[in-house]
Amino acid sequence: MHASRPDGGPALFRLVRHWARQWAPDVVQRFDEDAPPTWTVPNLFVIQAVAGAGPDEVTVADVARQLGIDRSVASRMITDAVRDGFVRRETSSRDARRAALQLTDEAGKFLHSAQTFQRQAFDALVGHWPAADRTRFAGYLERLATEVLDSPEGS
C-alpha cells in the first residue's frame, strides 16, 4: 500500500469480517425492545431482498440473486417469511409456474425498524465526520450497493 493512496480492498474486507461477527441473530432484537420472535435475521434478509428487487413482480429467483444464494435456500427462507406473516406468495401473472412475492404491512414495520437501526449505526460510525464527507461516503456506499446488487454485471 502506498502511503499517499488509501487501500480500499483490505479495509473493505476488514469491515466485512468485523460486521459478519457482529451480525448475530440477537442483533435484530436490538432494533426494537418489543420485537416479536419472528423478527429474525433470515426474515429481515428476505424482506430486504423483496423490497430491493425492483418495481416489477418479485420471484424466488430475484430473492436468491439479491441474497447471493441458490434458489432452494431462498425458497426455504421465503417459506419461513410467509409463515411468519411478512411475505405473501401468489401465482405469477406472467407465468403460472412461478410465485410472485409481496411484502405485508408487518414486513413494512420490520423493515422500517431495521432501516432506522441501520441509519443510527451509520451515524454512530461517521457522525463525527464533516457533513460533506458523510454525504459523499453515503452516496458511494449506495452506488456500490446498486452496482453490485442491482445491475446484471454485478450478479
Rank of each mutant, 00 (worst) to 15 (best):
H2A: 12
H2D: 12
P6G: 05
P10A: 15
A11C: 06
L12C: 09
V16C: 03
R21A: 14
Q22R: 14
P25E: 01
D26K: 04
D26E: 14
D26T: 09
D34N: 14
T38Y: 01
T38Q: 01
W39H: 03
P42Y: 02
F45A: 12
I47W: 00
Q48M: 08
G52C: 07
A53C: 07
P55I: 15
D56A: 13
V58S: 00
T59W: 06
D62H: 15
D62R: 07
A64I: 05
G68F: 14
I69C: 07
I69Y: 05
R71P: 00
R71T: 10
V73P: 00
V73L: 15
R76F: 08
M77R: 14
A81Y: 03
R83I: 03
D84N: 06
G85I: 08
E90D: 15
A99D: 12
Q102S: 12
L103Q: 04
D105C: 07
D105K: 13
H112W: 01
S113D: 09
S113V: 04
S113I: 00
A114V: 00
Q115K: 14
T116C: 04
R119Y: 08
R119M: 12
Q120N: 08
F122R: 14
V126H: 02
W129Q: 02
A132H: 09
D133N: 06
R134W: 00
R136Y: 14
A138K: 13
G139M: 08
E142G: 05
A145M: 01
E147K: 02
V148W: 05
D150I: 01
S151V: 13
G154T: 03
S155W: 14
